[in-house]
Amino acid sequence: MSDTIMKAAALDSEQPANQEQESVLSVNGVKKHYHVKAGMFKPDATVKALDGVSFSLAKGKTLAVVGESGCGKSTLARVLTMIETPTAGELCFDGKDILSLGKDAAKALRQKIQIIFQNPYGSLNPRKKVGTILEEPLVINSDMSKAERKQKALAMLAKVGLRPEHYDRYPHMFSGGQRQRIAIARGLMLDPKVVVADEPVSALDVSVQAQVLNLMMDLQEEMGLSYIFISHDLSVVEHIADEVMVMYLGKAVEYASCEELFANPKHPYTQALLSSTPRLDPAHRREKIKLEGELPSPLNPPQGCAFHARCRYANDRCHKEQPALVRETNAQVACFAREEGRIA
C-alpha cells in the first residue's frame, strides 16, 4: 500500500495543481437511454443504461469502474470512446467539450481515447495480419509513409513484448494473452492519452492475467496513460486502480480512492460485493453478507433506490426516493441509510 501512495505522491508533486485542472477526461452527468420496442401497440420502453454518471480522470491515473452485468459499465465504455452518443451530459477531454465540437475536431480528439476489449478472440480481425491491424489506425488518421508505419508498428510490438516476426502473422496463430497484447498495441498506435479497458483480463488465465496487468502498468508509467479500467473482479481492481467507482443499474453508488474503498467500503452494495469476492488468505476474508435476489432488470428498474430490494438497511424512503451521490470526507456515496446515519 505504501508503494502506491508513494507513487501517487510523486505524481502529485510533479503537478501541484488541484485535481480539476490536471484531469484529462472529465465526465458530467452523462446519460444514455435506449428506446426499446415493447410491441406493436405498446409505447416504446426506455432503458436507462447510464443514468447520470460523473467523474474526472487525472493524468497517469487509473479509474476503475466496478459493477455487475447491467450496471452500465460497458455502455460507459462505448460512450467514452464515442462509439455511441450520450443522451445527455458533458464529456470534457483536455478541457474541451467533445460533444459540442465540430466533426473534424471531434475526430482528432477521438484518436486520443482508445479502447481495449474483453475478448481477445473477437477484437482482432481474423482476416488481417497483425501488421495490418496495427497500422490501420495510422492509415486512417495520418499520412505516414508505408515504411514509417511499419517502423512504428514494430516499435509498438516490441513495447508490448512481442517479436518483430509476429508482424506477418494472423491473429489465430496467437494465444489469448498474446492477442490481448496485440489489442493493447493497436490501442496505443495513435498515442492516446486515455485508454478505456473493458474487462481486459477477465478472459485470460490467471498467470497470463498477471502478465497483461503488469504490461498495462508498465505502459502507463512509460507513456503517461490514464486508464478507465472496467472490471467485475475486485481483486484485480484493488491492484491496479487509483480511484474506484462502483456502479449499480446505471448509477454510481460509491466513488472513492482505491485504498479508502477497500479499507472502508461505505455503500451496502460495495460492502456486499467485497464480501462476495472469494479470498485466498483466510486473513483477508470478510464476513459474508448474503445478498438476496437477482440483479434488477434495466428494462424494469425498481422505484426509489435501485438497490433497495436487496439491501438490508432499506427503509420507506429508500423505496420511494432515489439517493444522489453525497460527498463525504473521503468518498462520495449514494445511500440514504448512510445520509441518515443509520449505518456507520
Partner: peptide, 12 residues
Amino acid sequence: SLPESSLGKDRL
C-alpha cells in the same frame, strides 16, 4: 500471480 498475493506491491 494472483493480485491478492501482491497487495501493496507495484507489480504482480
